[in-house]
């Protein structure tokens, strides 16, 4: 088969470019710890009262855990609990693990302006770990269509400095 020499060159350049694109993601993973959501665990969306989602909010992690705080968020038509009625409040300089699920339909959990962004799927628990360096209040919104009032599903995530963080507010 005849391939023009310019075309051979172009194929070579294309393959190198593709290799570089894949490499950026691998480097992101290994050097900068930029992870994506994986398969953690499934739950029965009709029996969430038997799980920690029955009493959602910020908890102190179990002793010996690799994180400092665990945040359980229930996303439902059309609110985050916590998040909508009162902000999710977490401290700076701590390892925080989020667990998010839904008892009804698909939702999105997006902390505006960050890479904290996950699908919320009934039956699955979305789990990710993060830390915040500076105090700031972020917007929180649902970015997956979840019904006629989808556009009102919003809230806030409040990061306060470690010294001002009141552990008495934690879910026990």
């Amino acid at each position: 088969m005849h391939i023009h020499r310019f075309e051979r060159f172009w194929i070579g350049v294309s393959l190198v470019a593709i290799a570089i694109f894949i490499a950026t993601v691998v480097i992101g993973f290994s050097v900068y710890d930029l992870r994506v959501i994986g398969a953690e665990k499934t739950v029965d969306p009709q029996n969430l009262q038997e799980t920690k989602f029955a009493d959602p909010g910020v908890r102190k992690a179990e002793p010996g855990s690799e994180v400092d705080y665990e945040v359980y968020v229930m996303s439902r038509q059309f609110m985050f609990n916590p998040g909508t009625a009162e902000p999710i409040t977490v401290p700076t300089d701590a390892k925080i693990r989020f667990h998010i699920t839904s008892p009804d339909v698909l939702h999105g959990f997006e902390v505006v302006g960050t890479n904290l962004n996950t699908m919320v799927i009934p039956g699955q628990v979305a789990t990710f770990t993060t830390r915040f360096d500076t105090p700031k209040t972020y917007g929180l919104l649902c970015n997956e269509y979840c019904g006629a009032a989808h556009h009102v599903m919003e809230g806030r995530l409040k990061v306060v400095s470690k010294s001002q963080f009141n552990e008495k507010q934690l879910v026990q």
Binding site: I22, V25, I37, A39, E40, I121
Partner: peptide
Amino acid sequence: YADPGITVGFKFYAMATTLLLLLPSLL
């Protein structure tokens, strides 16, 4: 990519095949 319930390995496989699909478009 943002779904819980699918392991990262399979997401990575899909990413590699997706980026390989750049080749026919570049050709």
